[in-house]
Design a protein around this nucleic acid. Structure first.
Lengths: 189, 189
DNA sequence: TTATTATTGAGATTCATTTTCAATTATAGC
DNA sequence: GCTATAATTGAAAATGAATCTCAATAATAA
């Protein structure tokens, strides 16, 4: 979970303003609203949640504007996509947080954040081996949290029923991918 | 890349038949076609590619059937989702392959597979620390491959142009998430 | 061979996301 | 402050991946 305080939120808003200016874009009340709201959320969020939260505060904004703001926020390094679940993307704000990884309970969905320095040494080793200049990593652990593991032990039916098979569950993508000069895949649909 | 040979493919097909029988499902020519084709692909693939490959071989099958087969193939441990890119999911077959992670060039998209045992020890450590019974992990490294790094050095303009900002790029999800008794998130749209 | 019921294909539907376009408004230059 | 320019907005339409519906078909068990 993100342990932000107001000053971090203010810094983030400031950073966004600078990003906007630097890119020759325009600072609009809509964009300010969005980033303010995002940094008021201390959890992972999705576009719909953002939309509803703003609407509840009587802040009228269109979903199109939310969707339009997301890539800017990602590019400015303020948020990142964390996972793809139930058919849509989820985000978290990353400004002022140190890089962390996720531990996810595949049964109840609980997410715990953790950080580990050893990962960086593995990262360096592999990068060297394959001639890559590594800029970031994505590491997620999946398993059963203590509560669910308990339940599992008393559960005789471990098989998945076909009826309940679903896709799009708990699909992690915790990374910010900066792609300064991508040469391929530029075929817009 | 997957280094399959025919015998692995045959084993996989056999395994799928057993899975089908075990679950009380029916073995159909469509399902056989699908798994045969998947194990004839030695790369990551998506539903559309699968559809086109089958069509090119004059094997007529509906996309609905492909989409319907995917969760079965995942549940039987034969394929897994590897990433979400350009707005849709990509898969790889995993039967007969040892678990591996991906190294991805964020510039050209090149993917290299690697395996590392140290990851498992980190996994165990973190699992113990947080009281999780870890069943699997997902680890991806992102950076610039040697060629792209070279290009980078001679590239003065490192900024992303707003016009080319895109989402849904190179979103990894390399894991099979088995979810035997999920208690939440069961609200179908 | 027959009855049962899962599976299929075609098309409709859903839903997240993107695009279009006319109206609005932030910014730069006066 | 005023004006011109062009970016941004909202609303609605469009897109596209994935899912669902339903009648026809076909795999399995008896």
């Amino acid at each position: 979970m993100n342990l932000n305080n107001n000053s971090t939120a203010m810094d983030a808003i400031q950073k966004f303003r600078e990003y906007i200016k630097e890119k020759g874009l325009r600072n609009t009340p809509e964009r300010e609203m969005i980033i303010e709201e995002i940094f008021a959320i201390h959890n992972h969020f999705d576009v719909d949640e953002l939309f509803l939260r703003l609407r509840n505060k009587k802040k009228r904004i269109s979903k199109a504007s939310l969707y339009r703001a997301i890539p800017l926020l990602i590019d400015s390094g303020l948020i990142k996509e964390v996972y793809f679940e139930n058919g849509h993307l989820h985000y978290e704000h990353i400004y002022g947080h140190k890089h962390h990884c996720h531990l996810r309970c595949v049964s109840c969905g609980r997410i715990v954040e953790f950080a580990d320095d050893e990962i960086v040494s593995i990262q360096n080793k592999i990068g060297k081996n394959y001639g890559f200049a590594i800029t970031s990593h994505r590491f997620e652990l999946l398993g059963y949290c203590s509560q669910c593991e308990q339940k599992q032990k008393t559960c005789t039916e471990r098989n998945t029923s076909i009826k309940t098979l679903k896709r799009h569950q708990a699909i992690d993508m915790s990374i910010q991918t900066k792609n300064p000069h991508n040469q391929r895949g530029d075929t817009r649909r």
